[in-house]
Each structure stands twice: as structure tokens, then as C-alpha cells.
Design a protein around this nucleic acid. Sequence first.
DNA 1: AAAGGAACTGACTAATCAGTCAATCGTATA
DNA 2: TATACGATTGACTGATTAGTCAGTTCCTTT
Lengths: 185, 185
Amino acid sequence: MDKRTKLILTAKRLFSEHGFYGTATARIAREAGVSNGILFHYFPTKDLLIKAMFFDVKDRLFDYSVGQVYKGATLKESIYTLWLAAVEFNLENANDFEFIRQFETSPFYRTETELEHRYVQLCLELIDKGIEEGQFKQIPSMLIFKSMSAQVETTVRFLKMNNMVLDDVEFTHRLFEMAWDSLAK
Amino acid sequence: MDKRTKLILTAKRLFSEHGFYGTATARIAREAGVSNGILFHYFPTKDLLIKAMFFDVKDRLFDYSVGQVYKGATLKESIYTLWLAAVEFNLENANDFEFIRQFETSPFYRTETELEHRYVQLCLELIDKGIEEGQFKQIPSMLIFKSMSAQVETTVRFLKMNNMVLDDVEFTHRLFEMAWDSLAK
DNA sequence: AAAGGAACTGACTAATCAGTCAATCGTATA
DNA sequence: TATACGATTGACTGATTAGTCAGTTCCTTT
């Protein structure tokens, strides 16, 4: 594994445990098994390291989930697929999940940052379609997207806190219905 | 205004703008117009200052919202009152809102911290009642509470980002229905 | 093999910060 | 008036940190 990747993985683990400011750059380098200097070779400042990590996570979430949505699916099926993929991804990648959570409430985060990403674009298109077709409530699509994201986050936090996994299909559906009902007409 | 209160108000403003670690204790004292030492007289460590502020906000939210729920109200009316009070409180107290948001995603936050508070207790009782009576979905009450809290947060963020206020009753109801539908059977 | 540049090292620094402390002030009580 | 004690000050310190830099290693190209 190259040192840049090692740094990102180590940083993600330490950030999710101790927060951005609770983690010294020197510690990231040490625990990644590389020199202090090389961190600043790849990421000129700590801020740029953090921002690079944000896009790294969003890219991987996109790759993980979008492939699963197939063309012929109904709107509800598509939303369900995206919802389930997001929940699974966050459950399986605990450090990514904690990292994003902290990033989005930090002063680093600006909405423009997120808007740029194709994952968000895709979701918004789907939601707009649902509103036009009259399947969704007459509410701004951005609010619906944010609401769904918040539901995913809440669900993941709950499952983790109670050491649960999504093995019960019936329960999984009940969780999804909670999110779905909030946007369906 | 006594110096302890001045410190809390100034800290809240600075924390909400620059985060916990982005705000030096010396700066809090300076902008509050008091000496550096007095901060540590009232709050022996920075962590204790932050925790004291958390309970300060929750207390005020409790006082603000609970008085508005009247005895004879239906379950939906009570939930609506609490939802609206929370949204209004967070809109009117921007610094409190940002502070709590950061606190809850920081390493300071432990779930036990919140459970102790009577505001949470009250909400959980109401939700349990709704589940027993069959009005709410068969989902753990803690998850429903967290989901509602997340919806309030999302709504407030959306309104603030678009410089909106809750002056349109019809739109307000549509926002509430979003949250309500996610928990109602 | 020579050259050149990217990857890499780790000791170093300038700045910042949480928390301390010795001294002073204000005021209430005896 | 004397005593006592909490409130208050602000200069100070020891520890920590992001970022630098001069020099070394490694690899590719000619």
C-alpha cells in the first residue's frame, strides 16, 4: 500500500476516534509508519488532508451504491436501493461514517463542497422526478435529500449503538418505511 | 450581567463560529471583557465549560417548550407543539443550535449525558404512549426520538440556509407532516 | 553510468494554548 | 477598625503543534 493511502486510512481512524483537532499530524505520520515530512508532501496543510479525505469517502460511496440501482426499477425500488446501500456502507465503514459526521458539522464544511459531488446530483435528480410525478410531497428536493441523509445517519447510529446488523429483512423494511413515509405523498 | 454568564454567552458565540478547538480560552475571556484567570475560576477546565454550556442549553429548551404542551391535547397536537417549539427555539437561538450540533458530534458527547436530561425523558414518555396506543410505528422509541430530533435539525438548517422564517402556516404544516408521517402508523 | 527529479526523512522552529499562581480588590461580618 | 474570604487580575509556563527545510534515497530516462 502506498504511503498516501496509508496516511488517509490512519488519519480517518484517528480522526474518528479523537476528532480533527484532537489528532496531531505527527501522530498520523507515526502510526502510519511514515515520516512526518511526507504527510506535508502529499497534503500541504492539515485542512487539505481533511478535504481530500471527504472526497475520497464520497467517491467510494458513489461507486458502492450507484451500481446497484438498475434501469427498470420503480422509483420506490431505486430509493430503497440507495437507502440500503448508504446504511450498509456506513455500517461497514465505521471510520468513514464517523469522519463524515464530524466533517459536516465542522467549520471546514460548506454546502458548495457537497453540491459539487455527483452522488448528490444523482439523488437530487431522482427526488425531482418523484416530485414531478406526484409521488413525493411538495417540498424542496434539497430538503428531502437532507432529510433522507439524516434518517440514514440516525438509523446507522442506532444500529451501531445497539450492536445490531441488518439481518432481519422484516425489521429492515420497517426502518425503510420510516424514511419513505416522510417523503411519500 | 455577571461574568460567569458573560463567559457562557461569549463562548457559545465563538464556539459556534470557530468550533471548540478553534477557540482559545484566552480569546473567550478577552471578548467577554474579563480576565483570563476568572474563566478557570468558574470552569476549572475547558471541557467543564463545554459540558456546563450543554446543560444550560437543554435547560432553556425544556423551559421554552414544555410549558406550551397543555394537558388536554391529543398526541399529535403535543408532538406538533414540541416539534414547533424546538424549531423555533433553534431558529431564534442560532448560537445554541450550532453549539449543540458540534457538541453532539464531538468526543465530549456520550449518550448517557443526554439521557439524564428531563427533556429527553419527557419526549420518550410521549413516544412510548404513542406506540402503546398503536398510533406510532412499532419501532424502538429511542430511534423515533432520534429521528424526530434529526428532522428538526434538518428543517432548521434548511430554513436558515434559505433565509426563511416560519411565517407561512401552510408550509409549516407541510414541514411537520414530513416528520409526523415518518413515525405515524 | 550519469543526470535529474520525485519520494522520503526527521530534526527543528515559531507560534499557540490550557491552565497556574501570587497578588490585589471588594465587601460582609465580628 | 480589623479580619476574612471569595472575586478578580494578568503575567507567566510547560507542553503541544502545524509546518519547514536541508539533505538522502530511489527510480526513470537518456
